[in-house]
Amino acid sequence: MSTTPNRRALVVGASRGLGLVLVDELARRGWRVVATTRESGGELLACADTRKGQVEVESLEMTSPRQLAALRERLERRPDGGRLDLLFVNAAIDRGDLPIGEVPTEMFTEVMVTNALSPLRALEALHGLVAPGGTVAVMSSEQGSISLNTEDGYELYKASKAALNQLMRSYATRHADDGHTKLLIDPGHNRTRLGGPDAPLSPKESIPAVVDVLEAQAGAPGLQFLDRHGETVPW
């Protein structure tokens, strides 16, 4: 990732929570950020108004391959060709704490499509915009670690994050020679709509540390699964 001025980032999934704070933190550090949302208005638009000239908002339903292709085409038409130093995909849903045997097929499909399939589709659609030496990152979770899964609960969410990690491993293997840094990031348990009101961290506490990791890992080879402190999370 370049340390020169005019660093450019695309954050997919930035309407609220971790993604929204990530956009604001990158802009605070001088990045120019394109941020996507499914919704018009809201906190992301307010962030763009505050960070005039540094944050732009694009509409995207990440689960739609058609919309991903259209976003790529819009970015490619820009004078800079849509060049990115960072592509960060942030998306996850949780549909409650059911044992897997009680999970309806429709719920299983929805969570897996949103949390595992769609982030990788986004990477495949957009990674060609990332400059040599740039970074491709996905928001994961310690909940996706198979070796750390020693407590009951949230079986579907855990499975979706483990699937995300495995798909990212396959992506990294297939694109081993593209010169991009590849990261799975565990931001910790945060007080968001997904994490709940009793989580120990706030995004404003955890995300600056996440951006520290993104910047420190610039140019690192291979795929890493790291927490917000830059420590390796076991697979």
Rank of each mutant, 00 (worst) to 15 (best):
D152A: 10
P221C: 03
L20F: 15
L201E: 10
T232F: 08
H189G: 01
T50N: 06
I100E: 01
E205F: 11
R228Q: 05
L20K: 10
D80G: 04
V34Y: 09
A91N: 12
E215P: 12
A216I: 11
Q217W: 13
A209C: 09
M112P: 02
Y154M: 04
E106C: 02
R38D: 02
R78F: 04
H229F: 13
D177W: 04
G144T: 06
A199D: 09
R95S: 05
G128R: 00
Q54P: 00
L71V: 01
G128T: 03
D80M: 00
N149V: 03
G82I: 03
Q67M: 01
M1Y: 12
L60S: 04
T50S: 01
R95E: 10
R66T: 09
L156M: 02
G196S: 14
L68G: 06
A159V: 10
Q54N: 01
L156K: 06
G30T: 04
L214P: 08
S141R: 07
P208I: 11
P99T: 04
E76D: 01
G30M: 14
L45S: 13
Q143K: 00
A220C: 15
T135W: 06
L60G: 07
G195V: 14
E25S: 12
G19Y: 11
A209L: 14
D97H: 06
L20V: 10
D80T: 00
E43T: 07
M112L: 14
S145E: 00
D97R: 09
V89M: 02
D94Q: 10
T232D: 13
V213G: 11
V34I: 15
V138T: 11
G30D: 14
R74L: 11
Q217I: 09
